[in-house]
Nucleic acid binder design. Sequence first.
DNA 1: CATCTAATTAGATAATTATTTAAATGGATT
DNA 2: AATCCATTTAAATAATTATCTAATTAGATG
Lengths: 200, 200
Amino acid sequence: MQLDRLVRFHKTIGDVTRIRILALLKNGPLHGQALADKLSVSAPTITHHMAKLREVDLIYERRDKNTIYFYLDEKSLIQQSEAIVKKVQSAAELVTSADQEKVRQDELKAESILRNFFTKEGTLKHLPAQHKKKLLVLHHLVEGLQPGKKYLESELNDYIRQFHPDFATIRREFIMNHFMYREQDIYELNPRELWGTSKL
Amino acid sequence: MQLDRLVRFHKTIGDVTRIRILALLKNGPLHGQALADKLSVSAPTITHHMAKLREVDLIYERRDKNTIYFYLDEKSLIQQSEAIVKKVQSAAELVTSADQEKVRQDELKAESILRNFFTKEGTLKHLPAQHKKKLLVLHHLVEGLQPGKKYLESELNDYIRQFHPDFATIRREFIMNHFMYREQDIYELNPRELWGTSKL
DNA sequence: CATCTAATTAGATAATTATTTAAATGGATT
DNA sequence: AATCCATTTAAATAATTATCTAATTAGATG
């Protein structure tokens, strides 16, 4: 994971109030006022904390009239909390030959699956229903995007349309599986460590 | 793990320099000067960071003459980085079990309040002005509605009128406090976790 | 159009903290 | 004893940030 993002994640978790928020959300969604009441802090304080949590994808939200319900993204919490270990380990990690062998086999499997879901011309027939295969296909699609580049929604749509007419579904899948994130109407790739794993 | 310690752990990790230190130590022990050189910071800065890392047991040290060698405690890193996930889980459970302790007492209080605002015949005298008591009364009223069932406005009015002639106010309170949801002219119960809390 | 409500923004304050330079400590070596 | 060297402490500064109150925005309701 990008160092900066890793730092921001831990800075975000390193606050009592925010840990309490995560614990409360673990029992189900809550709106801002409810959180403010339960934690005995003001509404703006909640806004502040939710912005931090959102920034590192620990929550997502659903609007109902004037009320916004916050949900815990537990998968994201698990993924990111493990990332620090990987980061430190990767400093000296030697890839064993056994690993390399497995990597090659997985590549072959992946290629075969991709051949199945893409035409010879390179367009996508349809999204796989099976979760891991779907991730593999999304991973493949997203490879054509530039890390760090900011995309307008229309640009992203155009890119996806090269492969399949239903850009809306695929764009949504990108977000849901943490390949990309959206800020206002700007889309950007996430660091690869946050991508839904396509390990076979 | 203690909440305070968990916070300190993440605060400690939430710093670029300290993550770099951990990554360097993963390749083997280093002394303070070496770290200062590699990271281009002053010796006191290293002292400062090592104190933080020591405080949460991420390093241990061995002295040789005047030189102190720092070692990474990787097991501790792994264990503590996973702790947040468990904490969120167990804190969430705590919240619910703490509630359970209070539940019986609250039930008794609630019954007493309801007796106050309802007649022996079961009709509502008037809506309480106090917010939490009002929620309690609304909660009680809404218990007679079927989850998942779609109500026409007129049906809902009829239901409420069993308790009180001013169905419009009460219907509006149902919506405002998230007991129900309206789409066009169809009313439906919200899931209970969205209801206005009637905790006393 | 006026009002309500939940959420956000703006602005201010107080606390925390990463960093530096300068001075002090505490063993080892001569 | 005098000195050397790695580390620590002290003091100062600058940046970050958690929190509050007051004002504003944005939707929904009447």
